[in-house]
């Protein structure tokens, strides 16, 4: 029972202290709130970039055009060689008749033009559609495909994929750096703000020590206070994330301008982001307080 009583008392004192030092508490809370909003935006961006990157990785296809003179036997051999390459996720064979049909299905213009082609007229080529495991090494795979006898041309949007992915990679990494830097800066800001409240409570700490408070006795209320500041500071960002992201998702109908840029589904995404925000807030508050009070302890 004893530890619970002490904890209860500390929680009570922490709450009292937040109200007593109201303006400084508000300063700390706003500090956490602003940071967490920026962190939330960065996180949402970063998760979405990650999401799009994965979709691109999954979707990106190499088209290998085959020499039209190949016999069925030779096409089998090409297929066998493709299966032997690394980095192949899946592949699909489409012959030129199927391609012509699907093109006709997709547009009336194609339909009128192509309806009258017979097999000899069809200028299209048989193809393999190949998906790779690692999109970043797509050019290596493309080069290997080119070397296979019977494949005439390889297309994969040379350069675009790699560039896109590397840009996304840079964006993601910068966001992570920004988030981490923000967290550290806020932790120090909180620490300094709480130092001000502690400075005004120097006397209280001095008297606590005189009457026999241990370092933990002295530290605990401040750390709990930091925890509350963190929780209070993360309320607004969490509400913004939960309602804001859902509204955004609805507004864009799940994708930004093109189906290529899919947004992450709001659920459970917003709750994951919210939990992370609460965790960061609490951590920053507690760490800040612990650091602030350290100076007043005799260790």
């Amino acid at each position: 029972m004893k530890p619970f009583r002490i904890l209860y008392r500390n929680i009570r004192d922490a709450l009292k202290s937040i109200f007593r030092n109201f303006s400084l508490s508000i300063a700390s809370i706003s500090c956490i709130t602003i940071t967490l909003i920026i962190v939330a935006i960065s996180m949402i961006l970063s998760f979405n970039v990650e999401n799009v990157t994965n979709l691109i990785r999954k979707d990106f296809t190499i088209i290998a055009f085959l020499d039209n003179k190949l016999t069925e036997e030779e096409i089998k051999q090409v297929e066998e060689k493709i299966t032997k390459l690394d980095n192949i996720d899946e592949y699909k064979y489409e012959n030129k008749i199927e391609i012509a049909e699907s093109m006709q299905d997709s547009s009336d213009v194609f339909k009128t033009i192509m309806e009258n082609w017979d097999e000899e007229d069809n200028p299209l080529q048989d193809t393999f559609l190949i998906k790779v495991v690692d999109a970043e090494n797509i050019n290596i795979t493309a080069n290997e495909l080119k070397k296979i006898e019977g494949i005439t041309v390889v297309r994969y949007g040379e350069g675009i994929v790699e560039n896109l992915l590397s840009v996304f990679g840079i964006v993601e990494k910068s966001l992570i750096v920004i988030v981490l830097a923000l967290i550290v800066v806020t932790a120090f800001l909180i620490s300094n703000t709480i130092k001000l409240t502690i400075f005004s409570r120097k006397r209280e700490i001095e008297i606590m020590r005189l009457v026999g408070a241990s370092n933990l006795n002295i530290k605990l209320p401040f750390i709990i206070e930091g925890l509350f500041l963190g929780v209070l500071g993360s309320l607004i960002p969490i509400i913004l994330v939960i309602y804001g992201y859902r509204a955004l998702f609805k507004y864009f109908e799940g994708q930004v301008f093109t189906p290529f840029l899919q947004l992450v589904q709001p659920l459970p995404f917003v709750y994951i982001v919210s939990s992370l925000l609460a965790l960061i807030g609490v951590f920053v508050g507690m760490w800040g307080s612990a650091r602030a009070v350290k100076k007043y302890l005799k260790i």
Binding site: R209, L210, V211, G212, S214, N215, N217, K298, I299
Partner: peptide
Amino acid sequence: KNHKVYKLRRKLGI
């Protein structure tokens, strides 16, 4: 030691 001073203080009045 500094971190044990509280044990003494609890037995005193000042």
